[in-house]
Amino acid sequence: MGKSNSKLKPEVVEELTRKTYFTEKEVQQWYKGFIKDCPSGQLDAAGFQKIYKQFFPFGDPTKFATFVFNVFDENKDGRIEFSEFIQALSVTSRGTLDEKLRWAFKLYDLDNDGYITRNEMLDIVDAIYQMVGNTVELPEEENTPEKRVDRIFAMMDKNADGKLTLQEFQEGSKADPSIVQALSLYDGLV
């Protein structure tokens, strides 16, 4: 993909415009910024974590950033290329609610087996709590990752089998306004 070129080839721009919710001009602008920050044309896990640390200076986002990195890194080569970056950004910032929920499901399904187990969710929720640090005051019933996961599973795990399917996750998330709101945070920002 033209590693350190400051412009993408027209056919690449066209393809990314088809695969995302961005215009050709927006794709070019994002590429310019991506190459400025990642001259090699790729972003590794350490660089990704560094970006998260800028956004969450009062907590430790390392663990959460690693989980997000793994979802962005579609081809699992340990690096995020621009096409992976822009497609994930498109879903998280401008995707439909169902697209965002499928993306979030992939984030929580750490072993990619098609289910979110209690332990997988606990890993992610714990990482989120570490990331936000003491900057967020949580209600008593959610002031630990374990309590939050218990509440989520009580609401979403309809067949009580200890794991969530994509359908259970989507339906449960849509029924909880706070989850829908959290997924909409990026709307309109890009």
Rank of each mutant, 00 (worst) to 15 (best):
D123I: 15
A154W: 03
K100L: 13
E15G: 14
A45F: 06
D60W: 14
K63E: 08
F72L: 11
D37R: 05
D98V: 06
Q54N: 13
V180K: 14
F67I: 09
T96A: 09
Y31K: 09
D113L: 06
K3M: 15
P139R: 06
I35M: 15
E137M: 08
D73Y: 14
T92K: 15
G2S: 03
N143S: 12
R18M: 12
T92Y: 07
S184N: 09
N119F: 08
Y31F: 11
N119Q: 08
K106T: 13
M155G: 11
D111V: 04
K147F: 02
G59E: 09
N159R: 01
R151H: 12
R102H: 15
E14W: 12
E84R: 10
I128D: 00
F67T: 04
D150E: 06
A46E: 12
V180N: 14
I51E: 02
Y108P: 12
D150S: 08
K3Y: 03
D113H: 13
T135H: 08
K100I: 08
L110S: 08
F34G: 04
G162D: 12
R102P: 01
L43R: 12
V68I: 08
K63C: 08
I80S: 12
E11Q: 00
L8P: 01
F56P: 06
I152P: 01
K53G: 01
E26A: 15
N119G: 02
E15V: 12
A65C: 09
N143L: 04
E84L: 10
G59T: 00
K7P: 03
S178I: 01
G41W: 07
D44N: 04
L8A: 10
S184R: 06
D98E: 10
E99A: 09
G133T: 01
T96P: 05
T92E: 15
E24Y: 14
Q28H: 06
M131W: 01
E11M: 15
K106M: 08
R148N: 12
Q87S: 00
K9N: 05
A160N: 06
D109H: 05
K106V: 06
L107K: 01
S83K: 15
S90R: 13
L166P: 11
Q130E: 15
E146Q: 12
W103R: 13
S178A: 11
I124Y: 01
V91L: 04
I124H: 01
Q49V: 04
A182G: 08
E120N: 13
S178F: 09
E11Y: 03
K3W: 00
K158P: 04
K147E: 12
W30R: 04
E171C: 01
Q54I: 11
A182P: 09
T20G: 01
T17G: 08
V27R: 14
V132M: 10
L164F: 11
F48L: 10
N134Y: 04
S93Q: 05
A127E: 06
K63Y: 01
A154K: 11
T17M: 11
D150P: 04
